[in-house]
Design a protein around this nucleic acid. Structure first.
Ligand SMILES: [Zn+2]
Ligand SMILES: [Zn+2]
Length: 348
DNA sequence: CAATACGTAAAC
DNA sequence: GTTTACGTATTG
């Protein structure tokens, strides 16, 4: 199904060639004025200052939380062979590249490698499916089955681009990988589903499954790669989340005046992730979805990580068409497990 | 209506 | 100062 997936490239490079300033040319002036009219501040005010999400990390790593709660060290699956030196272009550069190369906005360089099929917010299904499979033990030793199931007949299913926040050499370039990696990996492994050894079974890397595989790899076969790289990656990634991640939510009624980009007039600041839904639990950006690719301009969290709570509008009448009785929150099993394992591995 | 762009709040 | 990410405007 998912035949209706947006195969077209969602990323509109637009003409904003330069970094982030509409100084040079103003082909279109979309931002005439950014007045905003949030919903009803009552909703926000009503928001209890109960810092629920804060405990998530603690819950996940009850034992690991002993050492400290500074940053959530997450697992970072090394993409592949350790490369001492690599020309890792920054996103900005990539942006400019693609932007400048194409005057008119029409798909700058979205390699056909990644059908946005995985990009679908509903892509979580993949993760769910994977978890189900794992639980069922179907992937025990059945690479063929998994491949056939997850791999797409199209040709280029998924490719690992793990490094993401490589962190590089301690600070500075945070970057979050980008399309460029595609080519790199392609050259290295030949643009194909990357099947990594997963506890004896082979798993295809996909944006949705990434975190899962990562966690398990670290826990089960962390030795498959340099521990140092993993640690570095983990640190980098962890920092990224620590930025905002899941902090206590507390709004100052008095401060609710203006601002919030869109939440200026009359409204509330910004809601926070619930921290319990599956998307919230994703620790890593897929780097493949529109948000990830356009994060520089879109300033939005990875589609796979977008909190379901935030997805629905507060005053929304129809709310969201959530499938009743199908709360993915139960999926915490795999996620929690993976994370736990990852943390455990990191902690030692 | 969906996707994207921008401003800005909030955590660091 | 940094970055991340929400919310809306604008665009399509
Ligand atoms: Zn993403
Ligand atoms: Zn959530």
């Amino acid at each position: 199904m998912s035949t209706a997936v947006d195969i077209a490239g969602p990323s509109s490079p637009d003409q904003g060639t330069t970094s982030c300033a509409k100084i040079p040319n103003e082909p279109l002036r979309r931002s005439l004025k950014r007045s905003s009219h949030p919903y009803t501040l009552s909703q926000y005010i009503s928001t209890p200052s109960a810092p629920a999400p804060v405990d998530v990390s603690s819950l996940l790593q009850s034992s690991s939380a002993l050492h400290h709660h500074h940053h959530h060290q997450q697992q970072q699956p090394p993409p592949h062979h350790p490369q001492p030196h690599h020309p890792q272009p920054h996103e900005e550069q990539q942006e400019q590249q693609r932007s400048s190369q194409a005057g008119p906005p029409s798909k700058p360089r979205r390699a056909p490698c990644w059908p946005d099929m995985w990009e679908s917010p509903s892509g979580l299904h993949l993760a769910h499916a994977a978890e189900l499979l794992m639980r069922a033990g179907l992937l025990a030793l059945n690479p063929s089955a998994e491949q056939a199931a997850l791999v797409q007949p199209g040709g280029q299913p998924a490719r690992a681009e793990a490094r993401a926040e490589k962190g590089g050499g301690g600070g500075g370039g945070e970057g979050s990988s980008g399309p460029e990696e595609e080519e790199e990996e392609d050259a290295l492994m030949g643009c194909g589903t990357e099947f990594q050894p997963f506890l004896g079974a082979w798993f295809p890397f996909s944006p949705a499954l990434f975190p899962l595989a990562a966690g398990f790899q670290m826990g089960g076969a962390a030795h498959w790669r340099s521990a140092a790289a993993a640690v570095a990656a983990a640190a980098a990634a962890g920092a990224g989340e620590g930025m905002e991640g899941l902090v206590a939510e507390g709004y100052s009624p008095g401060s609710l005046g203006a601002g919030g980009g869109g939440a200026g007039v009359g409204g509330r600041r910004k809601r926070k992730r619930c921290g319990e839904c599956v998307p919230c639990r994703r620790q890593r950006n897929c780097d493949q979805c529109s948000s990830c690719r356009n994060r520089k301009r879109g300033h939005q969290i990875c589609k796979y990580r977008k909190c379901e709570e935030l997805k629905r509008k507060p005053g929304g009448p129809g709310f969201d068409s959530r499938v009743p009785g199908f709360d993915l929150r139960g999926s915490e099993f795999t996620l929690g497990l993976a994370q736990e394992r990852a943390h455990a591995a990191l902690d030692g």
